[in-house]
Write a protein that binds this DNA or RNA. Sequence first.
DNA 1: AATTGGGACAACCGCCTAGTT
DNA 2: CAACTAGGCGGTTGTCCCAAT
Length: 270
Amino acid sequence: MVRAPFYDKTGVKKGSWSVEEDDKLRAYIQTHGHWNWRQLPQYAGISRCGKSCRLRWINYLRPGVKRGDYTEEEKALIIELHQKLGNKWSLIAAKLPGRTDNEIKNYWHTHIKKKGKRHEFNRTSSSQGELRDHQEQSSDHEHSSSPSESSISQSNCPSDHNILESSPFLSAVLNNSSPSSTCTSTTEYSSTLSSPPPVSTAFMNCHADQGTDLAPSSETIIPDQDLSTGDFWTEPFLRDDMDSSSSSSYISFYDDGMDLFYQFMPTLQE
DNA sequence: AATTGGGACAACCGCCTAGTT
DNA sequence: CAACTAGGCGGTTGTCCCAAT
């Protein structure tokens, strides 16, 4: 299920995370916050790239991440929000406490989309010759989003109320449209949790830890030794409290012929 | 019992955007 | 204003698990 650990040519570890790595990352972030993802692995003593650390923290290690089966409310909400937002997984995740965009994305691709295709197939095989061309198009070009598909979606997709009215939970969540009203998206969570210590404190903490378990290993590159390369080792102590999730307006779009799926969505709620 | 094919999901990759210089 | 950097997002891949054959 996970990729076997290996080291790339630059010495960066890839693949599945070990318990030890998880512990190091968790301990470091809980102590210092993630003041700079790219430099964090150096100080945490992890041979990973910053992106990998960020992903691991956001999706698995940070407190409050919910694992396991989805509730009926969550399933319905995912469907509903995907209908509204398209593949904006981070926005969808923002409405699902404890769920991450990656997890929702996986869930969608494995569970819901599959269901939708089944319904689509049943409908195709039962009759509806006029839809055949469109459906073949949908399956052959999964990421197309033609105007014709959108128009079909607009005219035939079920009302939001089908779901909303069936679930007080959904109503409550969806009616609360303010991005700042919840703190569940990856972006928002990092904004709130990661408020780093004051710069000087963070700096002192990091260097005070050089001799501890949290210090970089002797093999790791100390950032200020490598400034001449002109790469990302620049200003390390930046605030990380920008909230980008609320700034991006999105254009609702649908892929994979999902508009047809939405036609049958009410029947998927069982 | 062995094989196989699909499901599930953790992780990676590449691109985009916002902020900074 | 252009170039650069970091963070974030969405798409895709790799691999384990398990049911079907």
